[in-house]
Every structure is written in structure tokens, then in C-alpha cells.
Amino acid sequence: MRIIAGRHRGRVLRSPDGEATRPTADRVRQALFDMLWHAAWGGRTAVHDQLVLDAFAGTGALGLEALSRGADHCTFIERDRAALNVLRANIGACKEEARTAVLAADATKPPPARVPCGLVFLDPPYGKGLVPLALDGLAAAGWIAPGALVVAETGEGETLDLPGYEMLATRSHGAATVHVLRAPGGGGN
């Protein structure tokens, strides 16, 4: 697993041993960031200069990719101890300590946000219905800016019914389905 593009292009990222963490594959991240950059609802500002939240962060691949591509700051939320150790090592390898914060927390019951984020990544374990729970918790804690882009990865065949969120795109990549939504409010980009 590596960073695909930007200032950290080619940087190899570690991942923890075992099955507890399932990093987003390089080809899925490439397709996702291409979509964010080139879709009519996306563009350069979808990532560049954004405050990013990477919830269920695991290795941090999504947030670190966003930083590599010009995001201002990324907050990572992860609760698994092994994943947290690898996440911190990956941040250090990219020398991104100054533009990141790591919270050892449950993304469905996060601590209050200091500032809401305009780009939110959710990559929870598949098949557990965690995306709606996390969105409710993150919104209540102030993590999601009005009109933010939310990228949620689910298992193949999982559907999302999220009242108030506008579904912008859904793409299947093998066992993964990537959903891009716009949070309520803000009117979009």
C-alpha cells in the first residue's frame, strides 16, 4: 500500500498484522480521488485546502492521501490499538505531524469537534451498519460542516439510506462500494 499522488507520491504505508484493519486498496483510492477531482460536484476544492476527517482511520491511507493532494489538515479517529500504532508511524513517515491530529476514540461516539470538516472519510468494518451511526455521532459532535462531502465505503451489496444527505455517486470496486454524499446545508461547492 502506498500514497498514489501528490507530495508523498510513492510513500509506502504500513498496515497492522491480522484482519482487524482492512486498508482501502490503492486502486480504489485512485478511483475515489479521481472522482473527487473530476466530477461535476467535485473539483480541486473538494480536497485542496480542506479540513479532513478520516474516521475508522486504520492505517490513515485516505487522510494521508488527501494531505498529499493538498488538504490543509486531517484529524484521524481510530480506536484499535494496533491500528493507532501503525497510523502514527505512517503519519511520521510522511512527516505530517504538524498537519494532523489523532484521536483514540469511537467514531460513532466521538469527542466534540474544534472545527467542522469539509471532507469526511468513513471506512468502517463492513456489514455492521456503522455508517449511519457514525454520521449521526459525528454530526452531533460538530465534525461535519454544512454541505461537506462525505465518502463512505461499505461492503458489496450494502445500501445506505441517509435522510438529509444527497447521494452524489456510488461506485463498486470488487468487494467494496464507495458512496459519495453531500451533507445537509451549505448548498454544495
Rank of each mutant, 00 (worst) to 15 (best):
I77N: 06
R79M: 11
L53G: 06
D54P: 03
I144L: 06
G63R: 00
A93R: 15
I144T: 05
E158F: 09
L84I: 13
L13N: 03
K95W: 15
M1T: 08
A98L: 14
M35V: 10
S68A: 12
R22L: 00
P132E: 07
V150E: 01
A140K: 09
A66H: 15
A176V: 14
R14S: 13
R81H: 14
A169F: 08
V86G: 00
P23L: 01
A57D: 11
G6S: 04
V28M: 07
P112L: 10
G6Q: 07
P125D: 02
G164K: 01
A169H: 11
V47T: 09
D49F: 13
N189H: 13
I91T: 11
D72G: 13
R69E: 09
T177M: 13
E78A: 04
R27C: 03
M1K: 08
A169R: 09
A139T: 14
I3H: 00
P163I: 04
D80T: 14
G92I: 15
T59I: 14
V120F: 01
V102H: 06
V151Y: 15
D34V: 00
G10Q: 02
A139G: 15
W143N: 07
R114W: 09
I77M: 11
V178I: 12
P163Q: 08
R99F: 07
A104I: 05
R7Y: 07
N189R: 14
G118W: 02
G92E: 15
I91Q: 04
T177Q: 12
A25Q: 00
G10Y: 07
F33C: 01
H8T: 08
F121E: 10
R114H: 07
L67S: 07
L130Y: 11
G18V: 05
E78P: 02
R79V: 10
L84S: 01
A89E: 15
G174D: 10
A175T: 12
G137Y: 05
V150P: 00
V180W: 13
A107V: 01
L13G: 01
K128V: 13
Y126W: 09
G174Y: 07
L149M: 04
G60H: 08
S15H: 11
G187F: 03
W37C: 10
L103P: 02
R114E: 13
E19L: 10
G155S: 04
G157K: 04
A148K: 00
A134T: 01
R22I: 00
V180H: 03
G42H: 11
D17R: 11
A39L: 08
G60C: 15
A175E: 14
F121H: 06
A31I: 03
V120T: 10
A107Q: 01
T21Q: 05
D136L: 08
A175H: 10
W143I: 04
L160I: 08
D34T: 01
T170D: 13
V150R: 01
K128Y: 13
A82T: 09
A148C: 07
A105P: 02
G18C: 04
F76Y: 05
T100V: 07
E65P: 03
P116D: 03
D26V: 00
H48Q: 15
A61F: 10
A25G: 01
L181H: 05
G58N: 11
G6Y: 05
A148S: 04
L64F: 07
A71K: 01
A175P: 13
V150A: 04
E158S: 04
P111N: 08
D54S: 02
E78M: 05
